[in-house]
Every structure is written in structure tokens, then in C-alpha cells.
């Protein structure tokens, strides 16, 4: 979240990915089980968009759908996914595959398991180069070593011959990043890349991502449940709950003045140094399972401020509460029936 990126947002950078009203679910003998309900978000070049939520909120499914990698029983039941204007859902799967790894890359949690134990990391980085860019073995290997240096792995040339099990978790994640960046993609989707790592390594990886993002003008969709990470690197953030986006806007704004009770609950539960006297908030209950969402607002069963008649009878829509302005052109949207009444405390 630097001044540069803010400036680019102002100038109106190219939209890389636009997901509009995406609904995903799967069929069971007794009916349709929805997983995502009209999810929309956008990622532009040069910006880091955060997608936050507890497990079960649908964040990972959203990202898999964006890559055309939905696991088998799941299907798209509505909406559109556009990459640089092209509708991925209308495209031939082979065409979508051509985008993966080249224009859009993805990195996952638990990087060690995401690397094939049977091949060296050099091979695995070189692979997209050979397959997509037609490089020769030697060329690809050379580039792989360069990429390893880019992701700050010491003794890169030597390390290229190592196997994943010989590396630490942090190093594996760097290798994953190197693989993802091999073909210079425009968009990087990072699904909880730092979750399995310890705190110091987390910071290093985040710094690395930020640096690379600036250098390559990459758009990043950063999926996480960790608000601390969001605060650190995301320009804009969307908060997901039970298959829906419940709030989205500039990260700073979300923290300073959250408009949705769920966002407020999440923020309150983050411990902050210097505020030890504050009570540690937590949200009672747990995320309702797919298909068992409450009618009306999905959050109403855990919300501290539900109101009968407004929160429970019809679907709540995502509305703009602050369209922003010339210095802050990013709108702030909320999905709450009572958003104009509630005043929720934020953090600075």
C-alpha cells in the first residue's frame, strides 16, 4: 500500500480481472447447494486486493473459479468472470488453460505440499517456461536460476538442483512465487500464502511480494483470514462471509470506519500492541455451512444488531455507502440492511 499504487488507482489502471455476480454451487440428490452467492470483485494492474474471511466463507472457491479450476462437483450457476475483458466462462477450457501460468498465476498455502516431491525445484520452475514459452532446457534452467535469485533464495544455482523436501517452508513458498512469476503474468492470485509460516518468515514473504509487485506492476488478489496481513499490503479489501461479499472498499477505510458488523467483529478481535486494555472481541457462533444460510442476511444469527423485519426476510444487496472522491476514487460498499444507522468503532 504505497503512494505509487494509490496514484495508479487514481489514474485508472487497466482492469485485469472482473468477477461479476458469480454464483457457484453443486448438485446433490436433494437439491442445489450454493457455495457462492453473487460474488463480485475487481483487480486492476498494480493494485493489491485483499479477500478476507473465515474458513468456509468461499474465498478459495472464488479464486479457483477465477482460474477455471473449480474441483469437479462444483459448477458455476451464474455471473461472469472476465480477464482483460474476455469472458472466461464463455471460453473453451483449452483457451482458459492457456491463460493459466502465463497471464494469471496462483500460489497456495502450505507450499511444501504444493511442490512435486519427485522433481527438483529447478525443473519445476523451468517447466512453465519450456511449455508456454518454448524455451530450450538450458535456457529455461538459466531463467529458473534468475527467478530463484529474484525471490531471494541464496546460492540459487546450487539450490536449483535441490528437491522440495530439502527446503524450509519459507523457501518453498519463494519457489512457488518463482514458478508463478516465470512467465511474467499480469495477475497473481495468492491463496493464504503466509498462513502456514511463522511470523518472521511471513514478513519476509510479504515484503518480497510487495517488492515484486512494484517492480512488475503486478495485480495481486490476496486471500487470507489474517487482518494484520491485509492491513499491511492490501490497497483494497473485500470481506466475505458465508458465500457473499459483505463489505468492500479501501483497506484503510475499512479499518478506520467499518460499516458491516462482521467486519467490525473481525477488526475488534485483532490484538493490538499498545492497546492491551481493550477487550478482545470475538464473534460468537460459527460460519453457517453452505446450503444452511439463514434467510435474508447471512450474518444475522451472529450479528449483535439484528432487526426483525429488515434483516431476515429478503436478500440484502451490496450498496455503496461512500462513492469516494477524486483523492479516493474507490467506492466503499456494504451489504447491511442497517448500514445507515449503525456506527461501528474502527481502529487507526
Amino acid at each position: 500500500m504505497t503512494a505509487e499504487t494509490q496514484e495508479r488507482a487514481v489514474v485508472g489502471a487497466a482492469v485485469l480481472m472482473r468477477v461479476r455476480d458469480l454464483s457457484v454451487g453443486y448438485r446433490r440428490p436433494h437439491g442445489w447447494v450454493p457455495i457462492l452467492d453473487s460474488v463480485s470483485f475487481t483487480v486492476r494492474a498494480g493494485e493489491v486486493v485483499g479477500l478476507v474471511g473465515e474458513s468456509g466463507s468461499g474465498k478459495t472457491v472464488s479464486s479457483l473459479a477465477a482460474m477455471g479450476q473449480l474441483p469437479r462437483p462444483l459448477q458455476v450457476s451464474g455471473g461472469a468472470i472476465e480477464f482483460e475483458g474476455r469472458d472466461l466462462l464463455a471460453m473453451d477450457p483449452k483457451q482458459v488453460r492457456k491463460l493459466r501460468g502465463v497471464e494469471v498465476s496462483m500460489i497456495f498455502q502450505d507450499a511444501l505440499r504444493c511442490l512435486n516431491p519427485a522433481y527438483t525445484i529447478g525443473d519445476q520452475i523451468a517447466e512453465p517456461l519450456r511449455v508456454h514459452k518454448g524455451m530450450s532446457r538450458a535456457q529455461a534452467h538459466e531463467r529458473a536460476v534468475e527467478l530463484l535469485e529474484l525471490v531471494e533464495i541464496p546460492r540459487a544455482r546450487e539450490r536449483a538442483r535441490a528437491y522440495p523436501h530439502q527446503l524450509s517452508g519459507g523457501m518453498c513458498q519463494r519457489v512457488m512465487i518463482a514458478i508463478a512469476l516465470a512467465c511474467s503474468p499480469k495477475l497473481l492470485i495468492a491463496d493464504e500464502p503466509t498462513t502456514a509460516l511463522d511470523v518472521t518468515v511471513q514478513k519476509q514473504i510479504l515484503r518480497l511480494l510487495t517488492r515484486i509487485q512494484n517492480e512488475m506492476d503486478l495485480g495481486i488478489l490476496f486471500i487470507t483470514h489474517d487482518l494484520g496481513v491485509v492491513a499491511e499490503i492490501c490497497d483494497r479489501t473485500a470481506v466475505m462471509y458465508a458465500g457473499q461479499i459483505v463489505e468492500e472498499g479501501p483497506t484503510e477505510e475499512l479499518f478506520r470506519r467499518p460499516r458491516h458488523p462482521y467486519t467490525h467483529g473481525l477488526i475488534s478481535s485483532v490484538p493490538r500492541i499498545g492497546h492491551e486494555d481493550r477487550r478482545f472481541g470475538s464473534i460468537p457462533g460459527s460460519v453457517p455451512k453452505a446450503g444452511h444460510w439463514p434467510t435474508g442476511c447471512h450474518f444475522r444469527t451472529r450479528c449483535p444488531y439484528p432487526q426483525a423485519g429488515r434483516c431476515d426476510d429478503r436478500p440484502i444487496t451490496l450498496e455503496v455507502v461512500d462513492a469516494g472522491g477524486p483523492s479516493r476514487p474507490v467506492p466503499h460498499r456494504v451489504r447491511c440492511a442497517r448500514s445507515d444507522e449503525l456506527t461501528l468503532e474502527g481502529v487507526t
Binding site: Q69, L99, R100, G101, M106, F108, R113, C114, N116, P128
Partner: peptide
């Protein structure tokens, strides 16, 4: 079902390559 197969798919590799190279060796 392993994670590295998901990675291989995310790399945009063809199904033949994913199964033939990545999966079978394991």
C-alpha cells in the same frame, strides 16, 4: 488429490502432462 497436482494445473499444463509427468511418477 494431492496439492502439487493443483499446482501443476495452475501452471496451465495440459492434462496429459499433469497425469503423465507429475502424477505417474509419484
Amino acid at each position: 488429490d494431492q496439492s502439487y497436482i493443483r499446482t501443476a494445473n495452475a501452471k496451465g499444463l495440459s492434462a496429459t502432462r499433469v497425469v503423465g509427468k507429475h502424477a505417474l511418477k509419484n
